[in-house]
Design a protein around this nucleic acid. Sequence first.
DNA 1: ACCTGAACACCGTTCAAGT
DNA 2: ACCTGAACACCGTTCAAGT
Lengths: 202, 202
Amino acid sequence: MARRSDHSREEIHEMALSAAEKIVREQGYGGLSARKVAGAIGYTVGTLYLVFDNLDDLILQVNSRTLDRLHAQMLQEQSAHAPARERLLQLGHSYIRFANEDPHRWGMIFEHRFPPEQETPAWFRVKVERMFALVEARLEPLAGEHSANEIAQAARALWSGVHGICILAITDRLDIAGVSSVQQLTQFLMDNFLDGFISGCN
Amino acid sequence: MARRSDHSREEIHEMALSAAEKIVREQGYGGLSARKVAGAIGYTVGTLYLVFDNLDDLILQVNSRTLDRLHAQMLQEQSAHAPARERLLQLGHSYIRFANEDPHRWGMIFEHRFPPEQETPAWFRVKVERMFALVEARLEPLAGEHSANEIAQAARALWSGVHGICILAITDRLDIAGVSSVQQLTQFLMDNFLDGFISGCN
DNA sequence: ACCTGAACACCGTTCAAGT
DNA sequence: ACCTGAACACCGTTCAAGT
């Protein structure tokens, strides 16, 4: 058998990514397999390897789209005329809401390990950087005398904190229940950190 | 074939856990398999299932031992007569050092997902709680007027932050290099958070 | 009683062979 | 040129059969 040409290469590519996203949403990272993706789009496993290098490549491209959606949502949910401090909090809340709406897809960004021989692709780093940049931009008007380097550090420290709360809550390692408690804890972290960072307490 | 009785059940149990720890240290969570563990201790796969419920059970027991070692190390590296704030920083540094010395074994604690039908075992929660308790104890003498509930929140927020930095650094998502930068970022987070939390800036 | 080895239902990846 | 299907080397888990 062979030669169907029902779909172009680009169509198969897109169908596979969508199917993979659905599987991850429903069954998590561990539930994803090349055979399942192929089955879901009505092709054989071999076909996937005409369109992707391998399963890692497919996962990377799913993660890329997830990072794009996350970034877009964080941007969109910013109320333009709110004070900088409130907008910073909104970023945290957006991040947590996103993670909570699709925990598996969000989680795969961080669960997936790049094969040790090859390092993290540059474009992937850029997409992560882009998120820190969002935080830095909101931090800047609040930072007073702090240097650009200190602002960059603050963005990384603060965002690692938000991420840490998020991942521990979602994997059920924190002893708190419900999304609102997570939002509350995030606000608590950000409030205290910002109080320390902004005013010259130190 | 069969009937060797070279080792008692307990010995096989211990040998399997040790072998698993070695495999995880060298090849990571993804490199662990029942067949590899069995091969490493000179038994067949089937034998493992006389001693463990399944691979999840084995992983859980490895993680349990890792949590014990982590807790012991954090306790041990506390200098008893240092001021509370310094001891709090030491906890963070211990945590990061531990993660950095054996990233795969530390990482498996958080990468492993419990099967969705059964919830997190109670004894596992206890071991995680125990770590937060360590942080709370150091936080208490610094907390002034804060309520016990606020101290508990602060411990969770702060430790999530340390954990977040740790996991992003180890999986190469932060754009910083080397352990000392990670320690520096942790100190930066803790300093600012504590300044905000302790003094009545807010 | 203790352990094996083969079986079952799954993997990722490759590639000769079909249309 | 496009896609298949079978193959290879792996999985976790079970269990009849051997000593």
